[in-house]
Design a protein around this nucleic acid. Structure first.
Length: 462
RNA sequence: UCCUCAGUAGCUCAGUUGGUUAGAGCGGCGGACUGUUAAUCCGUAGGUCGUAGGUUCAAGUCCUACCUGGGGAGCCA
């Protein structure tokens, strides 16, 4: 007989048919006559109840049906006599696939703290919460590819190992094949990278944007979706050293088109999850974050507030509230300022544009006022900045001037500059942190709980 | 990296002004129970009190350092 998944069985309408089920035991209840075994196989958040008449099964077998064990059951799918489920399986045969010693199996029937489950990341997929989170993570990954594919974007795989460290997006992990006990040195005593694998210093990427621009300036619209690495010693619930990022980049596209895309994209992803992950979202709404569904619907149904940095600074200076950090034109906004704008003042997502050039990256399009650049940050409730992007500077001389001012080595980025030399066009793009998106959509408050195996300072188990 | 809180049974925690043999609930194990839903009831085992020093007649409790974790901040996605 072909195995049916729990998802299939719960949707199956042919009562009294014979079925084969395989899965992991979540709980076992019962009395001296009958055992109720909840089986979950991860295909859906719900478990299915297997009913075993104890007279029909040897005691030695039933003793091995413990929380965490894997079993195979054949039997009839029947209407449940009890409350709490519509259907259940009346077991005819039970086989143990894998034992699970209840003395040492870490997961109990009862709920665990997220901290404890993080230390058991290899097993936490077997819990309702993490099953839901990682099914949603998959759905979002798929929806992202679908969204861009349906709109004529091409997925571009930008390199994970990069020779350039000019992007200025934080500390990088070095990539080397040197024996660390005997690193080659030149006559001056410096590390001799000509001896290293690539013949030059290399790092793990902090962004695929610069390479993404090269693709967009030929294919019109591209997006990257890959791992990204930051060696910053950040210890917060919103940072990991290895995370996934989506970076669309569009030629013939200005900052307004860019904002339109960002807003439409985020709303599409929320709608996709609401449409395809109802059970998981309902569980999370009930157990993790009671305001989740309401917040998702609200964000989906209301236009994002669009304001310039300068307007935001004015609002903050007039705010009837004391901030720990002062507000002044030219200073970057602090987390408390962003949260005030999103959660108190506008009470909806906010897109801020036209930031002071001094606090933004070299490649951003310079405005005519000589003071601001066409940057754009999308700010969300609870998690803050979810998207950062800009229109890019496509004029060669302006770009070169800015690079000199900011001491970005032009020779290292000669290939980037050539796109401005040969057929340059207006273009824009942004970066979306995949895990931050998942946090927002699942209501999980720690980024370590939305990536299967988080990498953080002093932590790379599993 | 800075600030702050925490680390006691498998899990979640309590533990008084420092004072005898360190407690509970849940989970595990044994038993009872004819349909359970985090089942219920009875019984039972289980501890190097994060690590290393120090103060004291006496430290889970006070002090110092370190480690690990949570929250806040910075950096950012």
């Amino acid at each position: 007989m072909k195995r049916s998944t729990v998802k299939e069985l719960l949707a199956f309408t042919e009562i009294n048919s014979d079925v084969l089920l395989k899965g992991w035991v979540r709980t076992r209840r019962g009395n001296n006559q009958v055992a109720f075994i909840a089986i979950n196989d991860g295909t859906i958040i719900h478990s299915i109840q297997v009913v075993a008449d104890l007279q029909s099964f040897p005691e030695e077998l039933m003793k091995r049906v413990t929380t965490g064990s894997s079993i195979s059951v054949t039997g009839k799918l029947v209407e449940s006599m009890g409350k709490g489920q519509n259907v259940e399986i009346q077991a005819a045969e039970i086989r143990i696939l894998g034992d699970s010693d209840p003395e040492v199996y870490p997961l109990q029937k009862k709920g665990h703290s997220f901290e404890f489950l993080r230390e058991n990341a290899h097993l936490r997929f077997r819990t309702n919460t993490f099953g839901a989170v990682f099914r949603i993570r998959h759905a979002l990954a798929y929806a992202i590819h679908k969204y861009y594919n349906d709109r004529g974007f091409y997925c571009l795989h930008t390199p994970i190992i990069t020779a350039s460290d000019a992007e200025g997006a934080g500390a990088m992990f070095k990539v080397t094949t040197f024996d660390l006990d005997g690193i080659p040195r030149n006559k001056e005593g410096d590390v001799d990278f000509t001896e290293d694998f690539f013949g030059r210093p290399t790092n793990l990427t902090v962004s695929g944007q610069l390479e993404g621009e090269l693709g967009a300036l030929a294919l019109s619209s591209i997006y990257t979706f890959g791992p990204t690495f930051r060696a910053e010693n950040s210890n917060t619930p919103r940072h990991v050293a290895e995370f996934w990022m989506i970076e669309p980049e569009m030629a013939f596209c200005d900052i307004t088109d860019n904002m339109d895309l960002a807003e439409d994209f985020l709303k599409y992803l929320i709608r996709y999850t609401l449409d395809h992950c109802q059970d998981d979202l309902e569980f999370l709404n009930k157990m993790v974050d009671k305001g989740l569904l309401e917040r998702l619907r609200f964000v989906m149904e209301h236009p994002f507030e669009r304001k310039t940095y300068s307007e935001a600074v004015e609002i903050l200076m007039k705010a009837d509230r004391k901030f720990e950090f002062q507000v002044e034109w030219g200073l970057d906004l602090q987390a408390e300022h962003e949260r005030y704008l999103v959660e108190q003042h506008f009470k909806r997502p906010v897109i801020l544009t036209d930031y002071p050039r001094e606090i933004k990256a070299f490649y951003m399009k310079q405005n005519d006022d000589g003071k601001t650049v066409r940057a754009m940050d999308v700010l969300f409730p609870l998690i803050g900045e979810i998207i950062g992007g800009s229109q890019r500077e496509e004029e060669l001389d302006k770009l070169q001037n800015r690079m000199r001012e900011m001491k970005i080595p032009e020779d290292e980025l000669w290939w980037y500059l050539e796109t401005r030399k040969f057929g340059t066009v207006e273009h824009s793009g942004f970066g979306l942190g995949f895990e931050r998106l998942i946090m927002f959509i699942t209501g999980m408050s720690n980024i370590r709980d939305v990536i299967p195996f988080p990498r953080t300072p002093k932590s790379a188990e599993f």
